[in-house]
Design a protein around this nucleic acid. Structure first.
Lengths: 240, 240
DNA sequence: GCAAGACAAAATCTCGAGATTTTATACAAA
DNA sequence: TTTGTATAAAATCTCGAGATTTTGTCTTGC
């Protein structure tokens, strides 16, 4: 069952994301509910049903759904309403490969172009992530760790001044996060993620362009490998 | 398990299929008007004004505008309405570089993975483009040539089975097209575009991965160079 | 028994008006 | 002159109901 504002604030209390319009608010709540898997892949999103849950009108709900189509988290079928984007192994494979290519390129460029400010922010993001990884003791679905991990990846590519690359990477990261949460709910990772982060961080600070690119690609592909090996049934839910 | 691809990453409904909803219709018309430069960069998009021009209600107009935000052709400013995305040299540079990187990678992969069907379609698209280029005698804003050119680029990357890559390339191609139409209205290109296409096509058919990648990057960057040298004033218009 | 067609129910899509927020103008005080 | 405030105007944002399309079910005919 979809939630809720409180829960989103728990996760990301960033003040700049506080939505000032109902459309923005509903958009963020829906996006969160989809990424968190509370709205299952393939589920129909009927305005009549959702408008009660989110306390807005049908037109407002429609506009929010239109925004989610941009992120490819919702699919619009002409004259037949909206559904949550289905999931598949093929799709996640494509997301992973595309992201690996783009992010590796971005990180290589960041290593080449990043200034002092980039190093400082990256160092900070890495430290916060390290703290979170020591503390979490491999709990799954750790929202705080998820936030730190995202920030670390953002800090890595921040040295590469390309808004378009960052825009695409943001979309792909959200997609990846959804697959992680859906597929790895009960499957602990067999790998030492922290060690991978350490290696990436050190290669970046050493300005080792080739190594950092290779490590990032490997790092991104590792989650796909885990999911493929777990072979968790990636099933769509029916509509309610 | 839904390995079906559906149409989830379609940026737009196929141009030949007439849109079945008003929202889709207005979305396509607005997008065309923006790319063709009839709606100037920075121009405010007031629902009250536009609903008269496009004969729809404010709510429908809003939903269409929300879809355009996805393509980054329209920018939504909270509580202050929508505007046509502004243009800048920095933005076009970023678009060009990102597209060069992505498309070069896609074409290299296509050369590596493309099957007979890919070769056949590419050959056809190239031939049609060649005919259009002989015929057009360097007229500017040739819609038919523009269509053939787009089809040729699509056919090139089609051999690489990555919906996400194609999705991003479609967005970037539209952005590039807008800049071409805005900036090159009265500036004939100094280069032999057809010769570039011939070289790219031959390298692709020869399965020369390295050459075709280099040529594509060069080809995409060439338009940026022309625009930079022309130094057409890229100005925003005021609101009406 | 199976296919085709018609009616009914449900869902989506669209609209015009009202509520909320932003922007512009006028006026007074320092 | 400049600053700040209050009022008015304009634009955006939101809603609930009606129109259009799709979906499900039943009947009819072969």
């Amino acid at each position: 069952m979809p939630t809720t504002r409180e829960r989103r604030l728990d996760v990301a209390p960033s003040p700049e994301t506080a939505p000032r319009t109902l459309v923005q608010d509903v958009y963020q709540r829906l996006r969160s509910d989809i990424i968190y898997g509370e709205l299952k892949p393939g589920k129909r999103l009927r305005a009549e049903h959702l408008k009660g849950l989110y306390n807005v009108s049908g037109a407002t709900m429609r506009e929010a759904l239109a925004l989610l189509v941009a992120d490819a988290l919702v699919i619009s079928r002409e004259q037949r309403g909206f559904i949550v984007a289905p999931v598949s192994i093929a799709d996640f494979t494509d997301i992973t490969e595309t992201r690996a290519t783009l992010e590796a390129h971005a990180v290589r460029m960041a290593v080449r172009q990043g200034d002092d400010e980039w190093e400082v922010n990256l160092s900070g993001a890495f430290h916060r992530l390290s703290l979170a990884e020591e503390r979490r003791a491999y709990r799954q679905n750790d929202d705080y760790w998820e936030e730190c991990n995202k920030k670390f990846h953002e800090a890595l590519v921040a040295g590469f001044d390309s808004p378009w690359t960052r825009y695409f990477l943001t979309i792909l990261y959200r997609q990846s996060e959804r697959y992680r949460r859906i597929a790895l709910n009960n499957a602990p990772p067999e790998r030492d993620v922290h060690a991978e982060h350490v290696a990436i961080f050190e290669a970046a600070m050493a300005r080792d362009e080739v190594t950092v690119g290779a490590l990032i690609e490997q790092h991104i592909r590792a989650t796909l490998d885990v999911i493929l090996s777990v072979e968790t049934a990636v099933v769509s839910s029916n509509d309610s």
